[in-house]
Simulated assay, not measured.
Amino acid sequence: MRLEKRSHSSPAALVLAPLGAVVFTLIVSSLLVLWAGAPVAQTYGLLLKGAFGSVFAWSETLTRAIPLILTGLAATVAFKARLFNIGAEGQLYAGALAAVAVGGMHGGTGIEWSPWVLFPLMMLAAALAGALLLLGPALMKARLGVDEVVTTLLFNFIVLLLVGAMLDGVMKDPLGMGWPQSVALQPDLELGKLVERTRVHTGLLWAVTLAVGLWALLKYTVLGFDIRAVGANARAAAFAGVPVTRTVVLVAMLSGALAGLAGAIEVAGRTSYVTLDMSPGYGYSGIVIAMLAGLHPLGVLAASVFVAGVLVGADSMSRAVGVPTYIADVIVAASLLSVLVATLLTQYRVRR
């Protein structure tokens, strides 16, 4: 058996491939639901109802989707240039820490800062923190050929240890009753609510705007062409005159900045302070979302809502029918593998 590249992929195959992947995912997950002794139809119905069955359910799903969109965009732009950024989790925490450092620890300077000045500075600090964290691995890859998968992954652990030290040290909230959390942001720096009496905030507008902006950058700008060229074949791109090292550095700065903004927006929109459990793996989930979206920035929006809906819906479903919430992780993982295989089969056919 061998794989033979297709001369072209039909539009019908491109449409049916993700649908087939979804069906396959539901079948695989159904076997686990049956194994747990629960009715499949009721389980899926409760999962959908818990994620999208009411205004409150939608608000919780969209709130969970906001950081997923930003980390998904961070992975998308990096993977487009074959820069495999596995460090979005650390970059998210670095951005959150920088946001609190600017927005919560600026007292004692003798200067009364206006929120109109402090808020942009807070977001800029978060973006720079995430960008600089990825800049080192990108330069090591471009200049020395060091595998960025290893370096970015290890940086996650370094950043989390740094965050732990800061939360137990200079950034510890004196009003936190000993709990390891940072000082809180000023109330004037927190993001407003999109829907009253829910947790969904205006960070959703930030995430959607950045997704559209990244799509336009990749499709209509010279930098976007350079990113796609480097991702397709770096040696050929260099031969054609594309500045490969500069492109990789710019991609790293952009990817890290998006992940850093995810941390800042999560702090300003939801938590108001930094804790070690602030992110339940948003940085790693962003990689799954980027792959589910086919590395398309607008597809990241739909993939993020899907993953967030599965995670949110699994909580209410588990309480009703007794199926463990880990079924959500199985659905997300199986959907990723299914989409990858389906995409492969649209480009290749199996030959004997």
Rank of each mutant, 00 (worst) to 15 (best):
A142F: 04
A129R: 06
I86F: 09
R64D: 04
A303Y: 03
G260K: 02
P137N: 13
Y220E: 13
W215C: 01
G90F: 12
V117E: 12
L298A: 12
T61V: 02
A12R: 09
A99P: 02
L26Y: 12
H296E: 12
F24S: 09
S255I: 03
T247L: 13
S114D: 11
G72D: 01
W35D: 13
T76M: 05
L46F: 08
M122W: 05
N156P: 00
P280K: 03
G50M: 05
L139R: 11
A81W: 05
G104N: 12
V28D: 05
G136D: 02
G164Y: 03
M140I: 04
A259D: 10
S272H: 10
V323P: 10
V23E: 12
G192L: 13
V146Y: 15
P180K: 06
S114W: 15
T25V: 02
F79N: 11
R246K: 14
T221A: 14
V305M: 09
S182V: 00
G224V: 00
Y44S: 08
G322W: 06
G130H: 08
R2A: 09
L135A: 06
I111E: 11
Y220P: 03
Y93C: 01
I158D: 00
P115T: 14
S7C: 03
S182H: 12
D329N: 05
S318R: 10
L175H: 12
G145A: 12
D173L: 10
G130R: 05
S182I: 01
G286Q: 02
V159C: 00
T43R: 02
M278P: 06
L162N: 03
G213R: 10
V307K: 00
P180Q: 10
V55E: 14
G53R: 15
L340V: 15
A81P: 12
Q42W: 03
M171T: 04
V117L: 15
A142D: 07
V183K: 15
S304L: 03
G20F: 12
T275L: 13
P115A: 15
A98C: 13
T109D: 15
G72T: 00
L97K: 09
L128G: 04
L261W: 02
V249F: 01
L261A: 04
G256Y: 01
L48Y: 11
G53Q: 13
A96M: 07
V15M: 12
A308W: 10
S316I: 09
T209L: 15
T76I: 01
V200H: 06
L175T: 13
K193A: 07
N233G: 06
M253F: 03
A184N: 10
V100A: 05
E4H: 11
A236Q: 13
V341A: 07
V274P: 15
A94R: 08
G231D: 06
A328G: 14
T325V: 11
L97W: 11
R199C: 04
V208P: 05
G224S: 08
V249K: 05
T343V: 04
T221D: 15
